[in-house]
Amino acid sequence: MPSPSALPERLSRRSLTWRLSCVLACVTVLIAAQFVDTDDYFPLGSLSQYGAPKDLNGSVRSVYLEARFAGENAPRGLGLSHRSTGVARGEIEGQLGRFVDDPSLLQAIADAYAELRPDRPQPQVLYLRRSVQQLRDGRVIGAPHILTLAEWTVQR
């Protein structure tokens, strides 16, 4: 093994200054992002995964997509994943308000599905839904309550 050098390579004052300034600036932004609670400053945004407390007697809400296909009466689940719809569930949840305000955005998901899954039956109507499951003392009680957040008849 080569013997280690006895002389450490030091930084000049200028190199040291910009390096420490960068650390200070980034740490400041990161701290501020936690207080402002924004992930807009990626990668220095809020570290918010599982950050929100959940009420032991509250509800668990989960967004999902359903689709009605030609020749079928009842809609069925259409998995939200990058490989099928271009965006995953977390991304839909992250801009849920946009879909509620403008259901025509679901057309983008239908178009992506048509391009990414051309060999599969194509949906005629899309439903963006939310299941709400009630908790009591941290335990699930009863059947889920289903809400339809947005509905869109696919344009071809």
């Binding site: 992930d39 990668p43 995964q49 965006v87 995953a88 839909i92 992250g94 801009q95």
Partner: peptide, 10 residues
């Protein structure tokens, strides 16, 4: 940039 930022990449 599509509505979800994961914080395991800092």
């Amino acid at each position: 940039g599509f509505g979800y930022v994961s914080h395991d990449h800092l």
